[in-house]
Nucleic acid binder design. Sequence first.
DNA 1: CGGCGCAGTCCTGTATACAGTCTGGATCGC
DNA 2: GCGATCCAGACTGTATACAGGACTGCGCCG
Lengths: 260, 260
Amino acid sequence: MTGTRVHPAVEAEEARADRTPSQTVRAQIELRKLVLSGELASGDRVPELPMVERLGVSRTPLRMALVRLEEEGLLEAIPSGGFAVKAFSEREVFEAIEIRGTLEGLAARLAAERGAERAGLERAARCLEALDDVVRPQDAAVDLSRYVELNAVFHDILLDLAGSEALARQIQRACALPFASPSALVSVQSAPGGDRSLLAVAQDQHRCVLSAIERREGARAEAIMREHARIAHRNLERALANQEMHLVPGSALIRRRFGT
Amino acid sequence: MTGTRVHPAVEAEEARADRTPSQTVRAQIELRKLVLSGELASGDRVPELPMVERLGVSRTPLRMALVRLEEEGLLEAIPSGGFAVKAFSEREVFEAIEIRGTLEGLAARLAAERGAERAGLERAARCLEALDDVVRPQDAAVDLSRYVELNAVFHDILLDLAGSEALARQIQRACALPFASPSALVSVQSAPGGDRSLLAVAQDQHRCVLSAIERREGARAEAIMREHARIAHRNLERALANQEMHLVPGSALIRRRFGT
DNA sequence: CGGCGCAGTCCTGTATACAGTCTGGATCGC
DNA sequence: GCGATCCAGACTGTATACAGGACTGCGCCG
């Protein structure tokens, strides 16, 4: 499947990775990394041949990756051909978060109205307890990466409870903009001077939405998830006000109103 | 840009079309047509070489088109490689409509809260008047294609009023499932025995949502658009109950519970 | 008679060659 | 000196060649 390999070293490298994740996928992942880290400046064209050289894949899989990243929303097609790194205004970032909140609200409502399986609800409850353990230490340093991980798991479980593949796809797409994902902005609130209490608020919302789903209170579940997403709004405002954009993932894609 | 052409006739054909719409786009359009018409059966693999022969493009642009259609949601990747035509359950169809309604509701709310430009509101009003002319003839045959066209225009204008590119993208994606688009199911209600009065109801909702946006009543605008989408739910139920699925676009993708 | 192994064929993933077009710069004319 | 034009380089879109897997059908063995 791999065809003639140019660099034998590369072959070895991906052999130890689990099961050769196809040049296309590798290119997609590497390219995404470059875009999010800002190594490819926002607005710049992404030239194929230099990228081929840089990533060590040939043009065909690279182009596939480019197409996928365009659909993902990280790149945009240049009229005359090729792709460029997309730029986002602050407003668009807010909108992306609002979209995610709305869709997650829909997921919560569907879960509540349709009734979720006991097993799923219990998984969610266990996840909440684990989150409690992370959030509880009030002054000690919160294990941020663990919080982010568990938070993502909880949001995934909620999606599962809704049991809609189409909705899952749509939410995944909304979260493709890195600053729109559920745990994108927690780093802001746990930064020095950040509002740690928001972590507790978010956790309370987690509890409330799960309770609402159990009681089949659809409207309430939906409202809570919407408001939950708006915590990200607040963190974003804080980051913008305090020059803390470096804490925001994918901040390189966001064009500030004034200069960098 | 076109490279070596295999069939000179094809070259002539696309020369009169406006500006060679790139083999990739052509392949995408043609493939979508084949999928929606059901010529490629739901669940079937889409083999590249036969398609190359059938569409008269080479493998490279064909594969690009396959990737795009997968992102669009019409195809799904086969684990062992390649793509297959996706199949949708009735439940997924309902969910797709609900997702569209939710997102259009968000668009209406944003338009209302942010305040829309006068020019846009006037365009919407003119579109409504044109729709009135189409809906009014109570017993005469309604010009369905014109209704569908104007309806689509109105929904587009609403999106414009929201002024969110990200949201527009997301709604466009939701409408990629053909049975989920705003005018997908009007053919059911204008079929013999269909409930024509629903056209009037839908038109009233159009009026109400525009009024709500003008008055900046965000919650109301949102609720109306959600309910508006649920007309499609009702039409779908009718089509399912009355064996009228042939009126539903992309019905070939929908797997009925019992047989065809 | 059924299950397993094996080979052939089909098919995809990847690499690369080729041609057309756009861009940037330098040069020439005014 | 400034602007328009022309040329060259680069880049993309497309076509095609190649190699490795996966599935199918058949034959063999238990």
